[in-house]
Computed example of a mutant assay.
Amino acid sequence: MKSTFLTVLTTVLVLTGCNQSDSTQASQGDGGKKLVVGATMLSMQNEFIVNVNDEMAKQAEDAGVELITVDAERSALKQVEQVESFIAQKVDAIIMNPCEVEASSPAVAKALAAKIPIINVNSETSTKPSAFVGSDDVESARIAMKFIADKLGGKGNIVMMHGYMGQAAQIKREQGAREILKQYPGLKLIAHQTAEWDRAKAMDLMENWIQSYGSGVNAVFAHNDEMGMGAVKALTDAGLKNKVIVVSIDAIPDALQAVQKGTLDATVFQNAEQQGSKAIEAAVKLAKGQAVEKETLIPFQLVTKDNVAQFMKKPE
């Protein structure tokens, strides 16, 4: 993961398939040239996004496709410019992991106008792309908040950590959480604020909430595991973790280990490998002019101490 991370921070990761096997031939367009796919990712400092990209790189290499990955560094403006650059390079298809629902939308429109297929992976834009591969973020939050409601017996004070404001996952995870909260009048959302998907920012935010509410917080719902782990650290340092339920989303390795140890009460598994592989699959098909599903949704799964072992990767 570190090698991918460091390479992408140089802004371009070019992966070329070395073998000239049948899979390489299969990946070629009508002109017999190797297909080139450009990918712009929300942030290569986010572990889940790195996991999605790692799988994209693996699948591209297996298919003999050249993948050019760039890091948008959470900037929708930069992301639009990156897509413009891909268009100028005349890539065969574009994969975008959108920074924002609205602000990243012009990138979709520009790609479609240039007649280059564009696939949104993991997150959405208001302008519809050629295809979407991801999961229903509303569902993930419903699962997480229902777990909290059950653990608290339908009564208690909850704080919620938002992801990057304006991104589809943040909007939909808030929506899903509020749907469940409406069903339990005894649950009170006493504070909610963004920590921008970031562990350190989440730790600072949780420390502020501990100062404001003390032991009045009964549960934390964090929109992703990075923030969930930050909340766990702040609560542990304050000696409050055993009194506060913390649930987050993604099931990254750190979070799975924390669930196994009992420091994180639950996470919601989001399948990075399937999102990455199906995004490449869609890109290749569209580049060849083949039909694909407009929307590919991969289900979320609740992960607790009872079933965490099945989600833990065995050492190779």
Rank of each mutant, 00 (worst) to 15 (best):
T4F: 15
F5K: 04
F5Y: 13
T11F: 00
T16P: 04
S21H: 05
T24M: 15
G29M: 02
K33Y: 01
K33E: 10
K34D: 03
V36R: 04
G38T: 07
Q45N: 14
Q45F: 12
E47C: 10
I49K: 00
V50P: 01
V52M: 05
V52R: 00
N53V: 15
E55V: 05
M56Q: 13
M56L: 10
M56I: 14
V65H: 08
T69Q: 07
T69M: 09
V70M: 10
R74D: 09
A76Y: 09
Q79T: 08
E84I: 04
A88M: 09
K90W: 08
V91N: 03
A93D: 09
A93Q: 06
I94G: 03
I95S: 07
A103P: 02
A107W: 01
A109H: 03
A113Q: 11
P117C: 04
P117Q: 06
P117E: 08
I119F: 03
I119L: 05
N120W: 11
V121G: 08
S123H: 08
T125C: 11
T125P: 04
S126G: 04
K128Y: 12
P129N: 03
A131Q: 11
G134P: 15
G134M: 14
G134S: 14
D137K: 01
D137R: 00
E139Y: 08
R142Y: 12
L152R: 13
G153A: 13
K155F: 02
V159L: 06
G163V: 14
M165T: 07
M165E: 11
Q167P: 04
Q167L: 14
A168E: 07
A169D: 07
R173P: 02
G176D: 10
R178G: 03
K182V: 12
L187H: 00
H192T: 09
H192R: 09
A195I: 06
M203N: 13
L205I: 07
M206C: 01
E207Y: 01
I210K: 09
S212I: 14
G216W: 07
A219C: 12
V220H: 11
D225E: 02
A231N: 06
A231D: 11
V232Y: 02
D237K: 11
D237C: 04
N242P: 05
K243D: 14
V244N: 02
V244M: 08
V244W: 00
I245P: 02
V247G: 05
I252N: 02
P253W: 09
P253K: 06
Q257Y: 07
A258M: 03
L264K: 07
D265N: 15
A266R: 03
A266Q: 05
V268Y: 07
A279T: 02
E281Y: 00
V284H: 00
V284G: 05
K288T: 08
G289F: 01
E293S: 13
T296P: 02
V303L: 06
K305I: 12
K305M: 04
D306S: 09
V308N: 04
V308Q: 05
A309L: 03
F311H: 09
K313D: 13
K313Y: 06
K314L: 13
